[in-house]
Design a protein around this nucleic acid. Sequence first.
DNA 1: AAAGTAAATGAATCAGTAA
DNA 2: GTTACTGATTCATTTACTT
Lengths: 425, 425
Amino acid sequence: MSVPGAPKVRTCVGDCLDVLHDMEPESVDLAYVDPPFFTQKIHRLNTRDGSATFSFRDIWGSDHSYSDFIYQRIRRTRTVLKSSGSLFFHCDKAASHIIRLLLDSIFGPEQFRSEIIWSFRRWSNAKKGLLPAHQTIFFYSKTDNFKFNTFYQEYSPSTNIDQIMQKRIRDSRNKTVYARNEKGEVVGNGIKKGVPLSDVWEIPFLNPKAKERVGFPTQKPVLLMKRIVELVTDEGDWILDPFCGSGTTLVTSKLLNRNSIGIDISEEAVELTKRRLEAPLFTESPLAQRGRESYRRHESYAATYLFGVAYTPVHRNTGIDGLLKEEVAGLPVFVRVQREGESVSQAVSALRKAARNKGDCRLVVIATHADLFDSGRFADVDVIPSTAFALNEYIKKRRPSTQRPPRTGDEGLISRGQKPNSKGA
Amino acid sequence: MSVPGAPKVRTCVGDCLDVLHDMEPESVDLAYVDPPFFTQKIHRLNTRDGSATFSFRDIWGSDHSYSDFIYQRIRRTRTVLKSSGSLFFHCDKAASHIIRLLLDSIFGPEQFRSEIIWSFRRWSNAKKGLLPAHQTIFFYSKTDNFKFNTFYQEYSPSTNIDQIMQKRIRDSRNKTVYARNEKGEVVGNGIKKGVPLSDVWEIPFLNPKAKERVGFPTQKPVLLMKRIVELVTDEGDWILDPFCGSGTTLVTSKLLNRNSIGIDISEEAVELTKRRLEAPLFTESPLAQRGRESYRRHESYAATYLFGVAYTPVHRNTGIDGLLKEEVAGLPVFVRVQREGESVSQAVSALRKAARNKGDCRLVVIATHADLFDSGRFADVDVIPSTAFALNEYIKKRRPSTQRPPRTGDEGLISRGQKPNSKGA
DNA sequence: AAAGTAAATGAATCAGTAA
DNA sequence: GTTACTGATTCATTTACTT
C-alpha cells in the first residue's frame, strides 16, 4: 500500500446525513462516531411494556427522535465504509443499550466485535451510589474480513513468564505436563509476545489542565483515539468522524499519517478543528505523550537514560542535558542524550552548538539508537553507548542478515503482531 | 435492628418463578440475579476429583424466548424486594442491552443506579479482535430510598494528598479555590477517606486452582459477592438468589452474617450448595490481598536501566530480570541487571543459577558499577556495560591516578557503609 | 456444511523444596 | 520451624482440525 507524503484532512460544516450522502460509497476504513448526548430524549425512549420493547422497531419505528436521528446517520455511515472497514461508536450508560440495538440492526448482530470499556479515574462527588468511571465504545465491522492489527499487552505480574515459555504436552493420563528432551531438559516453546489487548482500556481522562484541552465539553483524549486508529487502520487509510466536535479524531489521524474527514453541524466546532490542525499542540503528539508518561520516576527522557550517572541536570538549555559531577582532565564535561528521531551526528552538532561559548570543556553524546551511528568520526565529541544501544548492538552482531528487529514498547502496547488479514480476500 | 445469632439459610429446588410466587412480598433486601447469559452454549465442568459433572443449558430459540423468561422472573423478584431493597443483575455482552431494557421497564429507568463493570485478567489466546475481559452487573433499586453503604478506595498514586486535605471554597466568579484564613494560610479540611468506590471493579477471576472452586461452571468469586452484599445490606438482612447455582451468594451471605434464600432448578446444584454451606470455604485471594504490585519487586530498578530495550519483564524469578523480545542466534536471552552491592561475578552467578534448568538460552548481565568488574572471564555469560558504567569507565580512563571518584548523586543522602576495599578499585 | 474434538494458552493458584 | 522461591497444575476461551 502506498503511503502518501502528507495526510489529507477534509472538514465540512453541515448535517452529516447530507454530507455522507454525497460521499463515495466504500471509501472509508474507520468511522469513529461520538454523537451528542440527548439524555432527556433518551430517557423518554424507554418503553413501559415489557416484552414488546426488545424488538428494534419499537425503539426507532416510533417518532422517538434520538434513535431515529442516529439510525439514519449510521446507516449512511455504513454505506461509506469499505468492506474491510470498522465502526467505533462512543456512548455511555445513558444510551448504550439503545445504540447496541441500533447497531445490531444496521450491521447485523454477527458483525458485533467488542464492547470496549474505557475506564478512567476522575474527581469524585458525594453522590449516593457508585462513582461513574467508564464509558462504552461499541466496535462493529462491516464484514468478517475486517482489518485488524493485533496488539499485545504486558503479562500480568503474577505470571511466571520464563516458565510458560516451556513447551507443554499431555501425558498418558491426558494431563498437561512440561515437555522434556531425551536428556531430561525442558524444551522451549519460542519467544513470547505478551497477551492480546483486552476490551477494558484504562486510559487517563483528559487532564483538566492539559494543553491539549481546547475547551470543548466532550473532548476525548488523543491516547484513546490513537489506540482505536492503530487497531483498525494503517498509514494512508481514510478515517471519518461525522460528529467531529473539537477535532480530536482529525488531529490524531494527522499525527499518525492517516487521511481524515470531519463533519460537524456547528461552524464554530469546525473552525476550532481547523485551528487545531494548523498547529497541533506538542502535548497532542502521541509520541510526546508516550514518552513523557512512560518515563520511570517521572523523570525526563535524559534523566531516564542517565540513571546511575553522577551528573547535574542542565535545565533551560536545548543542547545540553547534563554536566558531570567530576571533571575529566581538568575540564567540565557536558552531556547530551541522543533524542528519538535524531541521529548521532545531529546530536553531536546540537551539543557543539550549545557548548560554543561555554569555554574549555569536554563533550559527550550518549547514543541511544543506531539508525545513523557514526561514532569515532568526531574529534571533539566522545560518543558513549547507552545500555539499550550496547544491547541492541550485541543482538545485531549475532542476527542473521535477513531478520528485522522488533519494535520497542510504548505505553502498555508492547508490540504489534502480524496482520492476520494480510493474505487478502 | 437486632442481629440474630446465626444467619438463616434456605435453599429450594425448583423454577424460581413458582418459588417466588409463594414468598412474602417486600421481604428481601438484596436480590442477586445471575441467570444464563444467553451464550447459546451448554456449560459443563467436572469437579476436581472427577466425581461429578455439573452442567446447564444456555440455548434459546430466540432472544424473545430468553427475554420473556427473564422478564417474568424479574417482575416477581421485584415484588419480594423491600422498598429499600436493591437488585444486582449479572450478565455479559451477549444480552446486556436486552437486560437493560427489561430492567428499565420493570423498575423504571429512574431506578437505574449503576452499570458496574467487573473486569479481570485471565488466560488468553491469539484472536482476531479484542480479548473479552469484563462482565456487566446492573444495579437497580426499588425506590429512591434505597439502602447504600458508602465505601472508599485508595487515592490514585498521582493524587496530591496535601491538596486534597485543603478546604476549598468558591470565589467571586464561582471558581473553586483553596480556602485561606485571614493570615493567608491554607485551611485544612480534615482527613480524607479516599475516593468513593467507582463502577469499575477489578477483581481477580476465580482461579482454576483456587480451593474455593467447587466444579460448577460460571462460578463467581466470593470477593465479588462480598462487595455487592456489603454495599447494600447490613448484618441480619435478607438476600435472595433465584439462580443460585453452586451457592456462592449463600456462602458469602453466611460468612457476612446475612440471611439468605437460594433457588435453583437443578437438584444437583442445590445439593452442592448445601454441602458448601456446611463448611463455607473462602480463600482470601492472595492477589486481591497483596495487590498486583506485590509481584513487582526489583522490576523498577531493572526497568530504569533497561529503558529503551525491547524486553519482557520477568516477575517471579529472583535471578532473571527480563527476557529480550528478540532471540539471539535462535536462543532466548535472559537478562539480569547487576544489583547495588553486588559484584559482576555475583550477578553472573545468580543469573546462571536461575537459568540452570531453563534449557538452551543466552545470558546477559548489565554491569552497572565497577567495584569488582572482571568482565571477559565468563564463557557462558556476556557482560554489557550500562550507560552509567560506560560513562564512569570513560572518566576513570582519563583520571589522574591521585584523584578520588565522587559518589553518585542519588545515593549520597542515604548513608551506606564504606566498603573497606573500595579504594583498591 | 455443521458439529464435535483437540491443541494452545496464561492468570493465579497450590505445593514442594531450598534457604 | 518459618519464609521465600519457583515448579506444577488447572480451565475457559479461541483457533484449528476431524468426523
